[in-house]
Design a protein around this nucleic acid. Structure first.
Lengths: 369, 369
DNA sequence: CGGGATCGCGTGAACGCTAACATTTCGAGA
DNA sequence: TCTCGAAATGTTAGCGTTCACGCGATCCCG
């Protein structure tokens, strides 16, 4: 147990000159850089003739480091190809600079675009993005997904889960981590950013009514999706307000196939002259069904969709639809997250994004009867 | 240095009874669980009357821990709601249980589906997935994306970047981390899993030739995409082999709009009777253009697409196309990654997935002239 | 010219885990 | 009953950061 004053250079792996004072080491001094394992702050410090703490200060842009030493450290970092270990940093600080995104089927245009917007915005803010997609849409699955992310020590979780049941699942969730719901239920008790579905549906329905149609039929989305609810309500309210009949809504599962099936049923009803379909894929299927049954669009029936996917302008005929700016939604979701992270306070803010009607050739004036 | 037999309970933050021997603590013994900060292994150990190391052993399923103590530890974990800190684990082991995915525009159907397949498979294997999308498609951007992921200490990187330039960008990349290319260039020097584009294009072209068309025109994808090259080659070779003329290929950017523009040009050429379009979106635009110019499909012109997106069956007319199983591609990409991770050896394996022609109504026999 | 504030930097201890080794326990055979 | 070795558990030292200090050197002002 006797310390004999062993010099500090006694550590193993002493492959870097412990040059103190003005660095006068030339390239020749430095042994085989490339055989080194990833250098740590200590290595950089030794190379620059300072302590690891000074390296940390330089890296974090802390004040009170002499320009001269800063330059020396920076040079060492450059020379050694040092890259900070964010795992260690995360352990020490308790912050991982990573955001979790829980998402339902990223194959769908909406969620995929939203995710894309989130990822780009997150990167701009210096955050990594870790994703987990839901295996099913029940409450347990949502909680498990969030749990996984929490285990991974993400700094916050953004939910792209536009399900009514999601709001409930979140209710019970421990709020020890910032959450944001995107395209979610406004009744949730966490911040939400979403497109105004009710208003979008109103625009679509009013557009058709303004064209002279007596009433407007509706093909709704799956019942547990918040979008379905909003669009259904917007449609119904608008009809009611206009004093028009409210026909029984059909419903699909967002797929073109389900729209096709709805179209088959509608094509048999002679008094149908206008249909508002809850998304563009279903509208595509509906167009197909109408065409197969010899019902002309827009000559016999006008059709309006929702989303404005990039293909909508090339349907036959080009689809009148309601555009949602998914990228903007994603970016706003991230903004809300950053705000919570920066202020350290849970917010319950709501951001509502406007939608926009894009008139194309699938809707036209009703034939005077 | 004299040990006076201080009982082991001397540590700070002794909020849990250090009951040794058979745990006889009742619920009343345990002070305010909910006010606790996240418990660590030490806390669990103290609660169970063992050392933190035993907790670690239980958690890692290590052998040699008595069933009785294991049960006690498990109970403590349950009771305290302990969750292992994977950040600390990552720091200690050097493995993060996280895989990085570099992807181009996740808004596109192909990459999105592939990503989805990867994520699900990764989760099944116990890996997290961290994504970064490319801001642009140049070499520097790819390297930066991989660099970000490496900084994040992912265990491996899967690239969903089907660009020719990607292969080059990877060439120089340090191989100190397992890589897998999905939908990538077979010439890359890392493992690749991809759909056989050449063969798929061959199937499409042969299908049209078999229907009696003299030759087949082609609308190719962007030049820097590997898919474009494969499909172009498959098309050209098949025509050449059949002794058919090889007309100059048009090209688009995968978008329906670019397909529309190609369609406008083709519709003015009276001798065009068959077109193979490099993806379904462009085919949609092409169908639209042909329809606008009064060219019937398939009566005047037969059209075959590529991908078989879910909407293709509902185009007007329903599109004959070549189906790619993106999910399978993603899963195989992950499998290759896991193999590298498990064996610890860099592989250069190639997995080629078959495609399948899906005949629908957009292609028909050529009119006898 | 002296004394306290400030600057610039270093030291040691976390963070929560695993790896390697040390130590205790326990059962079986002599 | 003692011994020995394997089984079961504990101890210590990292992993690479950051945080909270501490301590000389420098500076300013009376």
């Amino acid at each position: 147990m006797v310390d004999m004053g062993t010099p500090p250079q006694s550590g193993p792996a002493d492959l870097i000159p412990a040059a103190r004072g003005p660095a006068e080491s030339t390239a020749a001094d430095v042994p085989s850089l490339d055989t080194m394992t990833r250098p740590a702050m200590t290595d950089v410090g030794r190379f620059a003739g300072v302590s690891h703490m000074t390296v940390s200060r330089v890296l974090n842009g802390a004040a009170s480091v002499r320009p001269e030493t800063r330059a020396r450290v920076l040079a060492a970092i450059e020379r050694l190809g040092y890259r900070r270990n964010i795992t260690a940093r995360a352990l020490a600080t308790g912050r991982s600079q990573t955001l979790g995104v829980v998402t339902i089927d990223t194959t769908l245009y909406g969620p995929a675009s939203t995710l894309y917007g989130i990822e780009r915005a997150a990167r701009a803010e210096g955050y990594f993005v870790s994703i987990v997609s839901l295996r099913s849409i029940d409450r347990a699955s949502i909680r498990e997904a969030v749990g996984r992310l929490v285990d991974q020590r993400v700094d916050g979780v953004i939910l792209v889960v536009p399900l009514v049941s999601a709001a409930d699942a979140l209710k019970g969730l421990a709020h020890d981590i910032p959450l944001v719901a995107v395209e979610g239920d406004l009744r949730a008790d966490i911040p939400v950013v979403t497109v105004d579905q009710v208003d979008g549906a109103r625009k679509a329905t009013e557009h058709l009514l303004a064209l002279g149609h007596r009433t407007v039929w509706h093909v709704a989305g799956p019942t547990d999706w918040t979008e379905s609810h909003g669009r259904l309500r917007g449609w119904r309210d608008t009809l009611a307000k206009a004093g028009a009949d409210v026909p029984p809504p059909l419903s699909g599962d967002w797929s073109a196939l389900s729209g096709y099936e709805a179209g088959r049923r509608l094509s048999r009803m002679p008094d149908v002259t206008a249909v508002f379909v809850a998304n563009d894929q279903m509208a595509l299927g509906l167009l197909r069904a109408l065409s197969e049954h010899g019902r002309g669009v827009p000559s016999d029936i006008s059709v309006v969709g929702f989303d404005d996917i990039p293909e909508a302008a090339f349907f036959s005929p080009p689809l009148t639809t309601v555009r949602q700016n998914f990228g903007l939604v994603g970016r706003n979701g991230l903004r809300l997250m950053i705000e919570q992270l920066d202020t350290g306070m849970a917010s319950t803010m709501r951001v509502v994004i406007e939608s926009r009607l894009v008139p194309r050739q699938s809707s036209a004036a009703a034939r005077s009867q």
